[in-house]
Computed example of a mutant assay.
Amino acid sequence: MTQDIAQKFDADTAWLELQSTLQQQYAYLDRAGVDKDTLFEVFAPKLIVTQSKQAFADTAQMLLRHFYDPHLNLGPYNAQDYSVFPTGSDIYVNYQNQQFVVVDVKAGSAADVAGIRPNMEIIEIDGMPMHEAVKQVLGREISQLQPEQVNFAANVSLGGYRNTSRKVTAKGKDAEKHYHLAASYEAINAFRDGPMISFRKIDNFGYIRFNNGLGNNKTVDEFKQALAALADTKALIIDLRNTPSGGNTGVAEPILGHFVTHKTAYQRYQTQQVGLPYTHAEMATAYVEPSLPYYDKPFVVLAGHWTGSMGEGMTIGLDAIGAKTVIGAPMADLLGGIKTVQLKHSETWLELGFERLYHVNGSFREDFVPHIRLDTADKDSSGNDPALAKALSVLDRA
């Protein structure tokens, strides 16, 4: 009897710990479109009646997804958890006129290979109608949600469960079709064994694509080798559309350094501190130092729905240090610089953005939109590459 009482899960204390951590350390608690007070009122009663740490974690994940921030996560994960978005994602949809319409498909992914294309309507994921799938991700009806929350939940659901194959039902011009897709992680994990950088010449232009390697130090050397091989090109296309897993500044800054001749600012930030709102925190500036070889010709940047975290930082950084233009779709909006906090009462960890990040012009990183905006950046309805085609057109006219 005494042992049973000692082992009983204290959900009240676990909830207070999660809530206070968010309030004191999450730099995006007040983001537009999210009513945190209402969310806490809705989910507090659900959380404090959970009978186990696993039930608490599952419910807390629903709460956190309402912030539609892919950097805000709670673990540890198990097989019943969704794939982490956007790494575990290959279909991007928007909720339009009560339909979930494909906007983009990740190049080279299972969805791309299967033939899913923009403008199709997604009907079901693993036999569940999309409206129900959204409810399962967030624990609330669509009528209670903001459009950004609906879109985020829909895209999380389409990534499927961790390391589990998926069945997607989509409707094209004619009829519905069932697509059996591999687990969303498979295609992105395959890059671990390959080069971190792919490059080639396209006519007189150089093209360099990152293969989700912004957290791998090999990327720095491979980028330098690619740049040396493309030194005689008239201009360069830097493709950051395949960086969903982010990375770190130790990889990004030496790469940015190839495009400057002196110490140059590339982003700004404010750090959330316990007891001090980020709005009162000192604004700091991040700089990049020159790296050799220096590339002294025009360059453009490609970004899109699978440009995440450090990929987003590199995009705004390249824009700040002199890119001719940025082309593509809105990026993944992984908010801020992140850290992990251990929550002892629920035996979970909370990953959250504690640094708010800005373009050097003072605008929020998450508000940055490519100068030449394309809703579809990876694969168009014909299976072509719209962002690359636009980049070549821009450079041809230069």
Rank of each mutant, 00 (worst) to 15 (best):
E176S: 15
M62N: 09
A111N: 05
A182P: 01
Q144N: 07
Q98L: 10
S52W: 11
T21G: 06
A281W: 04
R31Y: 04
L158V: 03
M1N: 13
G275P: 12
L318N: 09
F152H: 14
A187G: 03
Q146G: 01
L29H: 02
Q51A: 14
Q98I: 00
T233Q: 07
F259W: 02
A190T: 08
D10W: 00
A286E: 14
L72G: 03
A111P: 07
G215L: 01
N361L: 06
R162P: 02
Q273W: 05
T340M: 04
A190F: 13
G139M: 03
D81V: 02
P290H: 12
D12I: 13
W349M: 11
V134M: 06
N361R: 11
M283C: 01
L230H: 11
G108M: 04
N119Q: 12
T307Q: 09
K8V: 03
D30P: 01
F210C: 04
N204W: 00
Y82G: 04
G275A: 14
R268C: 01
A60Q: 05
L395W: 06
Q272A: 09
V84W: 12
A79M: 07
A32Q: 15
S382V: 09
Q149G: 07
F40I: 11
Y269D: 14
A228Q: 13
E17I: 07
P45M: 09
D35E: 05
L74A: 13
G127C: 00
F205E: 00
A229V: 03
K36M: 11
A303D: 10
G115S: 05
T376L: 02
F205I: 10
A133N: 02
L64A: 04
G337W: 09
P118L: 03
V220L: 08
L276N: 03
F56T: 06
V288M: 10
F67M: 07
K106G: 02
S89R: 04
